[in-house]
Computed example of a mutant assay.
Amino acid sequence: MVADSKGSSNISFAGTFAASAFSACFAEACTIPLDTAKVRLQLQKSATAGDGLALPKYRGLLGTVGTIAREEGLAALWKGIVPGLHRQCLYGGLRIGLYDPVKNFYMGGETVGDVPLTKKILAALTTGALAITVANPTDLVKVRLQAEGKLPPGVPRRYSGALNAYSTIVRQEGVAALWTGIGPNIARNAIINAAELASYDQVKQTLLKVPGFTDNVVTHLLAGLGAGFFAVCIGSPVDVVKSRMMGDSAYKNTLDCFVKTLKNDGPLAFYKGFLPNFGRLGSWNVIMFLTLEQAKKFVKSIESPSH
């Protein structure tokens, strides 16, 4: 993926898919507590006038992590890890595994010189949209499991686990409900995928032209941080709308959710949890890309003798 200028499509699609899925799952397992905190912060409605001076329950990323751990136990921070891993296998594997083939398709066989940024963005938009269309049910279940906080005594949980959540949603709401929020989710993931993959590709390509920079861990680390930052700046508003639509069925559609959020909570609500989002996506991208570069080297070493 995210190749050097020579193009590293010398790994098979299966190899790239496996390396991508593994890297995405590893990054997910490391950073899901931050993601759970982010979902809780995004779903927290601002205090209404009638509440007097009610302070928000969750404050700040680490404060939210602390509150969840204190009230619900440490394991609660990994709520949604099972569908999270389902999602990363499908979504991570497809969006990254297809990136190089789709980029080459848009290049139409011209592989002379650097790939233009527009083609990188177009390829990443395409693979992000395709991958999340397949993986949307896993995303929905993940958000629903993460959204459930501490329950009063005697109140049963909506779902006993990930597989139970899939079957309960199908039974109670129908199969189509698994694709709830597919509109904002396609928008969010196509945009964030483009921001991540195209900016990683671009930052890495630019750094490699700077004297002293080689294709090593420092370059991968800086490119990964750049990818996370661009992804959060561009993706935060659609991310908030997606979390609110998946966590609360009061919204009619994407536009309704966008307008109500703007009217009730103001424009800054779209950047609610910006720092937790960057903490999450920044660290996620660094871990994922560092792991991916190593995983691809490993796959290449296995595959190369057969060439």
Rank of each mutant, 00 (worst) to 15 (best):
S9G: 15
F13G: 01
F17H: 00
F17Q: 02
A27W: 00
E28V: 03
P33M: 09
Q42K: 08
Q42F: 10
Q44H: 09
D51C: 07
A54L: 14
K57V: 09
Y58V: 10
L61I: 09
G63A: 03
T64H: 12
G66I: 05
G66D: 15
E72P: 04
L74H: 11
W78C: 00
V82K: 00
G92D: 04
G93R: 05
D100H: 09
T111R: 15
K119Y: 10
T127G: 12
V141W: 08
E148R: 12
P152A: 15
G154W: 02
V155D: 03
R158F: 07
A162R: 04
I169H: 10
L178P: 07
P184S: 09
N189P: 01
E196G: 08
A198K: 08
Y200Q: 09
D201M: 08
T214C: 02
V218R: 11
A223V: 04
G228H: 02
G228K: 01
G235N: 01
P237S: 06
V238A: 15
R244T: 11
L255Q: 02
F258P: 00
L262R: 04
G266M: 13
K272V: 13
P276M: 12
N277K: 08
N285G: 15
T291D: 03
F298N: 04
S301M: 14
P305L: 06
